[in-house]
Computed example of a mutant assay.
Amino acid sequence: MATGTRLVERETLRTESGRDIAVVRYGPGALSPGPARIVLDTACLPYDRIELWAVLTPAEARRLAAVLVAQADAADQDTAFCRETVS
């Protein structure tokens, strides 16, 4: 994947309860100076009031964990590539 100050990859998981959770990877420097970042994003639904939370089945939790680990590994590679390019 190309690096830079932009969104690099986005994967959305939909829970059985209907909530979408997006795992978004941004390139180095996109959100703040420094390494690539991984963001979890979800929207408020009509029944959300004061708190925003998601209920995950064990399978959904494992899938989310796998996506997070994969994106973290990719972000490490993006950041290392960016450092090598600058050096």
Rank of each mutant, 00 (worst) to 15 (best):
D20Y: 06
A36L: 04
E11S: 09
V23N: 06
Y26H: 15
L56R: 02
T12D: 14
G27C: 06
E16P: 05
D78C: 05
A80G: 06
Q77G: 08
R83I: 04
L13D: 04
V69I: 14
P46H: 10
R19S: 07
V69P: 00
D41H: 10
V23D: 09
V69W: 07
D78E: 13
E51R: 11
L7N: 00
A75K: 01
A54L: 03
D41G: 08
T5Y: 02
S87A: 15
T79A: 01
F81V: 06
R14N: 02
A59W: 04
P35S: 10
L64R: 07
Q71V: 02
G27P: 03
A22W: 03
G4T: 00
A22D: 14
A22T: 12
V86D: 08
P58Y: 09
Y47D: 15
T79K: 03
R83H: 07
R10H: 11
D41Q: 12
V24Y: 01
V39D: 07
V23F: 08
L68I: 15
D20Q: 14
W53N: 12
Y47A: 12
G27M: 05
T42M: 13
E11V: 15
E11Q: 14
G18D: 06
S17V: 07
P35T: 06
A43V: 09
G29M: 05
L52A: 10
L56N: 13
V8T: 05
D73W: 01
T3K: 00
A61M: 09
G29E: 05
A75I: 06
A75L: 02
V67C: 08
L45A: 08
G4E: 02
S87K: 08
Q77F: 00
A72W: 06
P28C: 03
A30G: 02
A72R: 13
F81Q: 10
V69S: 12
A54F: 08
V39S: 04
T15H: 10
I38L: 12
D48K: 06
L45E: 14
